[in-house]
Amino acid sequence: MPAEADPVLAALSDQLILVTVLLYVLAMLAYALDLAFGRDRAETSTAPAEPVLAAVGGTAATAAQQGEDGAAVRSGADEVPETAASGAGEDTGGTGPAPKPLPAWVTRAGTAALVLSWLGLATNLGALVTRGLAAGRWPWGNMYEFVIAICMAAMAAFLLMQLRYPVRFLGATVSAAAALGLGAAVHSLQVEAGPAMVALNSYWIAIHVSAAIAASGLFIVAGACGVIYLIRNDAAVHLPTREELERVAHRAIVIGFPIWTFAVIAGALWADKAWGRYWGWDPKEIWAFITWIVYAGYLHARATAGWKGRSATIVQLVAFGCLLFNLIGVNIFIPGLHSYAELPGQ
């Protein structure tokens, strides 16, 4: 590992971060426009292109999509227009009730937002790669790099989910969070590129920290859903339904939870190599454990009937709070073995 960082690459990385912030902010604005004016749910969300689905009973299909169990559908009043839109979609040619034609620039806002955020993801990745090349190591060796990686993971989790599921409505929240995270990292966490602490010289950093970053990205997507869920009121017709938000959050957590489990286990394996014990109740370990427990509690609470909706969302957000505290708070406030933050000015 070189002792000296490559100054050109390091500077390039810093500039790419600024470009990324700019792209994320523009993407956020475009998503917001899309959300406010361009939302046509029959077109964007449930477009059953398969002719087979046409044969499927309309009510039955929607019921299965609205309720996780296919049995427990609690039809809130806000859900009715949705059901009508997707159920009637087949007959009216997939447009639903269209009050007035929208200006072309508004309908393109959603596409523009996606393009901007994919570009932002690319520059975000570019910033990490150049940073890693500059320092000659994995680019998550301190708090600054870690926050940048988590912002990238959140954006990637959202964009990948968006490929398969109609979750574009999350774009504004996720890109705002990513832009704020990057901004905060640049503003108060930035340190010069250079070698990491000796304890981090291990291939486990690639396994343990990457898994933690990936899981965090998914949990951020779930957390964004949870926040929208709580602030959404019934009049907000542009926003997705609560059931939809809950379903997306659950999906993200179902993927994120095993990854987080793996990250914790990989951390234990690394601790076994580095510190002489696989589990020692270091503050970081304690909070990783607490986060794991609360997400496990969320999954149990959801699986057993009665804890859906608001209470499940609150549990999810508590878990998310624990995660954030573990990622950021523990590094800054609590001394422990994981004090790799390398905060500026220390």
Binding site: E50, A61, A64, Q65, E68, G70, V254, A303
Partner: peptide, 14 residues
Amino acid sequence: LTRTGGGDFGEEFA
């Protein structure tokens, strides 16, 4: 039908 929760069965059923 699905006996346990976990997203839409519709696609697979189709």
